[in-house]
């Protein structure tokens, strides 16, 4: 990112406060407002900072074993980052599991670098006080798939199974409000307050939603990973918390990612 982009990013950050004021009384939808931000920062997104941080973390020796992640196999061979995200989740022979990006990074950080799993999963998401290494790494990796067509495979029986289970989780109603993902994401052109909701049964909606995450959230001033997105939707669903990188989250991601196949990956995105 060059200096002029950094300036633009700072401009956007300073506008965050006034953004909240606009939100309070404007009749325009959130998607319109985000479009205005996009134009304003054209080729710079505050997520770029996170991407750079992630790249450094990827290349720098770290963890108890003091090795970098450059031998991490994200599915296209050890160290291959380019285009890897466009094919995730996928089945991995070494773990005998279908894994999404974040669960795979977790595998690499624990096996290659020797970092205890609990150290990563205890606080996997960034806060105002502390950045998250695994989220920054994810932001770096996804950036290397920008412009590449999503091509998530269902060839392996375990991949097909993850998709089928993900579909069931999507429709699973429970909790004090009887909500499922489908309560909010299976009808077209509906919104909650002013927030437009994607209908994941419609390919165009699923593509736009999936390919724009991870994303920098203007309202939070943080770059958020896809695991975070699912976590927060389960919160809104009044569910208990899904364990980080657990099968429930991976299978659901598989279902959503396959629904987005064929579209160019466009993240890291920018959201309200």
């Amino acid at each position: 990112m060059n200096i002029s982009n950094v300036k633009k990013v700072i401009l956007v950050l300073s506008l965050t406060a006034s953004y909240a004021a606009v939100a309070a009384d404007a009749a325009i939808s959130d998607s319109d407002r985000i479009e205005q931000y996009r134009e304003m920062i054209s080729d710079g997104n505050p997520a770029d900072f996170d991407e750079m941080r992630g790249e450094e973390l990827w290349k720098k020796p770290g963890g108890p074993k003091n090795v970098s992640l450059e031998k991490c196999n994200l599915g296209k061979g050890p160290g291959v980052v380019k285009g890897a995200y466009a094919e995730l989740p996928r089945y991995f022979k070494d773990t005998k599991k279908v894994q999404d990006l974040e669960s795979r990074l977790l595998t690499c950080m624990t096996t290659l670098q020797g970092i205890p799993e609990a150290d990563i999963t205890a606080k996997p998401f960034a806060s105002e006080k502390k950045a998250s290494d695994i989220s920054s790494l994810a932001t770096y990796v996804v950036g290397q798939s920008k412009g590449i067509k999503m091509a998530v495979s269902l060839k392996h029986p375990k991949e097909k199974e993850a998709y089928e289970i993900g579909k069931r989780i999507f429709n699973y109603r429970a909790g004090p409000y009887d909500f499922a993902c489908s309560t909010c994401h299976a009808t077209s052109d509906v919104r909650i307050r002013m927030q437009d909701l994607p209908n994941f049964h419609v390919q165009k909606d699923a593509q736009a939603a999936f390919t724009s995450w991870p994303a920098y959230r203007v309202s939070q001033g943080l770059t958020r990973s896809f695991q975070w997105r699912l976590n927060d939707c389960f919160r809104q669903q009044r569910f208990p918390e899904p364990k980080f990188a657990s099968e429930v989250t991976v299978d659901l991601t598989m279902f959503l990612a396959v629904s987005a196949n064929g579209a160019e990956y466009a993240g890291p995105g920018l959201k309200r």
Binding site: I165, A174, P240, K243
Partner: peptide
């Protein structure tokens, strides 16, 4: 078989957080 697997995963992969206890996934 898929229904049973999905049910087992849902049972095992959520945990208590604040007032939202894990048993909320029981239908």
């Amino acid at each position: 078989m898929l229904d049973a697997k999905a049910a087992a995963i849902i049972k095992s992969d959520f945990r208590d957080k604040g007032i939202a206890k894990a048993d909320r996934v029981n239908q």
